[in-house]
């Protein structure tokens, strides 16, 4: 079974690629106490260039596992995953390196991407401006608040200049107000990156969460995974224009519908 991870497109023919990520009939099982345990079962999902998709599911649905597979941190047991270049990944924890300043964390990402030394400082400053942390270049990680750390982490992920940003519950540990603000920032950055049309690059986001409203607030498409094993249960296209607010009636209405379905999926597990 062919497993392709990573480079499927070179910079020149980027526009020819019709997906940012293509997940084809992917299954994943881990060795558990009762033999092989199937975590992901026959998942097929395409993320279009510039698209914002949220993966929604209860615990045990394997959504983080799926994200790790797309990130290339693990290999599927069967099936194939192709991405347009190496994706960037953001975690629930900021995962910034405490021995570097905020600016140097971003510069490390630039350096590993091959950006020449002379350009790194300016580029890091620009990325910090983008997440509205213009003055934070020389700040140590421990001097920043939780929300600021996640914004630096976002800037570091963006420093990879990937066309696909994978996010693993990146705002789950933040307070509600800060999370709200970061939803706004992420939406703004994603829209700005895609404002030049599909030929100008663009940024696709695959965002994992267990928070239904967050999923609806952010995404163009919400994909619901069932649990144990993770299968795609249903998906919704979210038509409301951005910027939305998490309190919007339309967001609440769709969230209610999705929550009902999610509860149904969870209930099935209590019935045997």
């Amino acid at each position: 079974m062919a497993i392709t991870i990573g480079t499927s497109a070179r910079a020149e023919d980027r526009t020819a690629v019709e997906y940012a990520a293509r997940i084809e009939r992917v299954s994943k099982s881990f060795a558990g106490p009762a033999g092989q345990q199937l975590v992901l079962d026959d998942i097929s999902l395409d993320v279009a260039p510039g698209e914002f998709v949220t993966l929604l599911g209860a615990s045990g649905c394997g959504k983080s596992t799926l994200l790790n597979l797309v990130a290339g941190l693990d290999r599927p047991s069967s099936g194939a995953i192709a991405t347009d270049g190496r994706p960037a990944l953001m975690f629930q924890e900021h995962a910034l390196f405490p021995w570097l300043t905020a600016g140097k964390n971003i510069e490390l990402a630039l350096r590993l991407r091959g950006v020449p030394k002379a350009d790194r400082r300016d580029e890091a400053e620009r990325l910090l401006e983008l997440v509205r942390l213009g003055g934070a270049y020389g700040k140590r990680v421990h001097e920043l608040s939780g929300g600021m750390r996640q914004r630096v982490a976002m800037a570091r992920a963006l420093a990879q200049d990937s066309r696909l940003l994978l996010m693993d519950e990146p705002f789950a540990a933040l307070d509600a107000i800060t999370r709200d603000v970061l939803h706004g920032e992420l939406t703004r950055i994603w829209e700005t990156a895609n404002s030049g049309g599909p030929a100008a690059g663009g940024l696709s986001v695959l965002f994992v969460t267990h928070n239904v409203r967050e999923a609806v607030r952010l995404a163009q498409r919400v994909v619901l995974l069932s649990s144990r094993p993770g299968r795609i249960a249903r998906e919704w296209t979210v038509g409301m224009p951005q910027p939305r607010r998490i309190e919007d009636a339309a967001v609440a209405e769709l969230s209610l519908e999705i929550t009902e379905q999610l509860r149904g999926e969870i209930r099935r597990h209590g019935q045997h």
């Binding site: 509205r132 421990h142 920043l144 608040s145 929300g147 107000i177 603000v181 706004g184 920032e185 703004r188």
Partner: peptide, 21 residues
């Protein structure tokens, strides 16, 4: 960006100031 993000910017600056160590 667009004018609609202005209130977000203010909110964010306030949060950062409150959280500053």
């Amino acid at each position: 960006g667009a004018g609609r993000t202005d209130d977000l910017e203010g909110l964010e600056a306030g949060l950062d100031a409150l959280d500053a160590v």
